[in-house]
Computed example of a mutant assay.
Amino acid sequence: MSDQQNEQAFYEYLLSEYQHPFAWGDWSYLEGRRVELPIEQPWGYADRVVEAMRTVRAILDMRTGDGSMFASFIRQQSHPMQLYATEGYAPILALTRQHLEPLGVTIYEVADERLPIADEQLDLVINRHGSYDLREIRRVLKPGQHFITQQVGDQTNLRLHELLHTPRLSTGNAPTWNLAIAVRELQQADWQIIEQREGFASTRFYDVGAIVYYLNAIAWEIPDFSVERYFDKLVAIRRLIEREGYLEVAFHTFFIVAQKTKMS
């Protein structure tokens, strides 16, 4: 087979991976091809939120995703609560409603970080891997109440962006986004930091097709991604994987519990 034929076969293979159906949250298609190494997250986001919910009467889950995690938190509570969630990613809103509406959650479809909730109505705001506006969170929280967030830091998928020559624009609230920056923003906005943690891990990709499938599934990471547009760089990544055995990509998260000070 000629080099041109090899290249065409590789292109068609990548295109088939790009077009392979993806069900939200189901990464089974990449089993053995994309391996997540254990991440250092000693804070236990889920456990911390479940515990915090035991003493609240009104809670908002910002950017709830498909709602399955929030639903699991709610099912572990035994007292009545006012339950709210926001989500803006249209492809999963049907799943969000399916998981949360039977539990009495009011779901708001949002296009930005503005919160369609009245001032000082909430005892707790939680946010896992979503962007946020601190002014809005402060507005809807009662004085003395808490904001709990786990954020994706700016080192996540950075290697992919470097190899594809794409800007890092989608993580958190800014291209540069880490624990120190988030804590500084909160402190400057007069929040009290109760807890702050940061953790790092890696994901290993063992073939380029897995990378193509992954990037198409998380379309917000590189919004203009396509096989055709990035083919030359994908060929270069194939050579790198052939040489090194895999491509290792960082996964970076951090965790904050912040309290709204009693003075507005």
Rank of each mutant, 00 (worst) to 15 (best):
158 L>T: 05
169 L>S: 05
156 T>M: 01
146 H>I: 07
163 L>Y: 07
158 L>M: 12
146 H>M: 09
150 Q>K: 11
166 T>D: 02
165 H>I: 00
131 S>K: 14
143 P>Y: 09
137 I>W: 09
143 P>A: 06
170 S>H: 13
158 L>V: 13
166 T>P: 05
144 G>E: 03
169 L>F: 02
152 V>H: 00
161 H>T: 04
136 E>H: 05
160 L>A: 06
141 L>M: 05
141 L>P: 03
143 P>C: 06
169 L>A: 06
164 L>P: 12
146 H>C: 11
167 P>S: 03
151 Q>S: 14
170 S>C: 12
136 E>P: 10
145 Q>N: 14
157 N>R: 00
167 P>F: 04
142 K>N: 03
157 N>T: 00
146 H>F: 13
163 L>D: 02
163 L>K: 09
169 L>V: 06
152 V>P: 02
160 L>D: 04
156 T>L: 02
154 D>V: 02
140 V>Q: 06
137 I>M: 13
153 G>A: 09
167 P>Y: 04
133 D>T: 02
146 H>T: 11
153 G>P: 13
146 H>P: 00
150 Q>I: 03
167 P>C: 03
169 L>C: 04
165 H>Q: 13
145 Q>M: 14
154 D>Y: 15
132 Y>L: 12
142 K>Q: 12
167 P>N: 05
131 S>C: 10
133 D>Q: 13
156 T>I: 07
140 V>H: 08
152 V>Y: 01
138 R>Q: 13
133 D>S: 15
142 K>C: 00
163 L>P: 04
163 L>N: 00
151 Q>T: 04
158 L>G: 01
138 R>K: 15
147 F>R: 01
161 H>G: 02
168 R>S: 14
130 G>M: 06
168 R>E: 09
149 T>P: 00
145 Q>A: 05
155 Q>E: 15
144 G>C: 05
161 H>Q: 02
166 T>Q: 12
137 I>R: 02
156 T>P: 02
157 N>K: 01
143 P>L: 04
169 L>G: 00
141 L>A: 03
162 E>I: 11
162 E>D: 14
147 F>H: 06
163 L>S: 00
165 H>T: 06
157 N>M: 10
156 T>E: 01
137 I>Q: 07
149 T>H: 03
155 Q>H: 14
166 T>W: 08
133 D>M: 06
132 Y>Q: 12
148 I>E: 01
170 S>T: 11
166 T>Y: 10
130 G>P: 08
132 Y>M: 10
151 Q>C: 13
139 R>Q: 11
168 R>G: 00
148 I>M: 03
152 V>G: 08
162 E>H: 12
155 Q>L: 15
155 Q>D: 14
159 R>G: 05
149 T>L: 13
168 R>N: 13
138 R>I: 00
